[in-house]
């Protein structure tokens, strides 16, 4: 449901959330991002963090600086503007992905499963791994939220017709899988920023880092996190040689990430 009037939810005494709806609809995410942008532009003081998710904006505040009532009043003044926003800044980031890498096959074997990409190809009624790759690269993946672990992204196909699904593992892994594995859980494409016990099936290994604490490379935040909510991931298939080449160039500092500054319009939802 998309709420006619956004709901303010209580998250204890030092946080609240402005919730625009309860489903995974990109229009809700755009409103949450627009409200974040509005609160950053009109900072009432006392807000310590803004955490957009697919359907809501989490707001952390210092109650000694701003009371809940005044904060809610300030939000109410910005909501109409946020609800009406149809275009927001959105970077497009090049995602060189080695689909179906040997490591993914080893993980599936360790989990006692058929190679993950083969399973996803069959369960989505596709002809081949190449068909999967063609579809996964045919549309940008919209980063609706960043979090869970540092820099981890929750991304959804902008073209819903190109979305594919993969059930989460019934029992999440008890061991950590390495960083930079791109995974599919439900319709959500995610990436392990560090070594983590993910419960999603892996698609392959990403050549670039999404979490590099201490880096000064262009494109990363002060925390070393590459993505922010509202970015777009543009995946492309690479082979082992290109993967190794990019890793070597990242190590020697000669690789520049492909980042295009752009805007996203709800009038042209798949673009």
């Amino acid at each position: 449901m998309i709420y006619q009037h956004p709901q303010i939810r209580q998250l204890g005494d030092c946080a609240l959330a402005v919730e625009f709806g309860d489903e995974a609809d990109l229009r809700l995410n755009v409103r949450a991002l627009a409200l974040r942008n509005a609160l950053e532009a009109h900072d009432p003081g006392g807000i310590t963090d803004l955490v957009p998710t697919m359907r809501a904006l989490g707001i952390l505040f210092d109650p000694d600086r701003i009371g809940k009532t005044r904060l809610e009043g300030h939000i109410a003044e910005l909501l109409d503007e946020a609800q009406a926003v149809q275009s927001i800044p959105s970077r497009i980031i090049d995602m060189p992905l080695w689909y179906d890498d040997p490591g993914s096959r080893e993980l599936a074997a360790r989990d006692g499963m058929q190679p993950y990409l083969e399973y996803i190809v069959e369960s989505n009624g596709l002809a081949s791994i190449d068909a999967f790759i063609a579809r996964h690269t045919s549309t940008d993946q919209w980063v609706a939220a960043v979090g869970w672990a540092p820099g981890c992204t929750f991304a959804y196909a902008l073209d819903r017709d190109a979305a594919m699904t993969s059930p989460k593992l019934v029992t999440p892994r008890s061991y950590a899988i390495p960083e930079r594995y791109v995974t599919l859980g439900g319709v959500c494409t995610s990436i392990t920023p560090v070594s983590l016990p993910s419960g999603y099936r892996t698609l392959g290994r990403l050549a670039i880092d999404i979490y590099l604490p201490g880096t000064r490379l262009a494109g990363y935040s002060a925390t070393g996190v590459l993505f922010q909510a509202g970015d777009r991931q543009r995946y492309r298939a690479i082979d082992r040689q290109e993967y190794e080449d990019i890793r070597a160039r990242i190590d020697d500092g000669s690789y520049a990430l492909g980042i295009e500054d752009s805007t996203y319009s709800t009038q042209d939802p798949t673009g």
Binding site: L11, T53, A56
Partner: peptide, 24 residues
Amino acid sequence: AAEVVRDSGSDPSNIVDDMIPLGG
């Protein structure tokens, strides 16, 4: 609602992900 089940998962405790506060 059907769209919440579709978007969040089959377990009745599933919601479409949102922020978890400290103490949540």
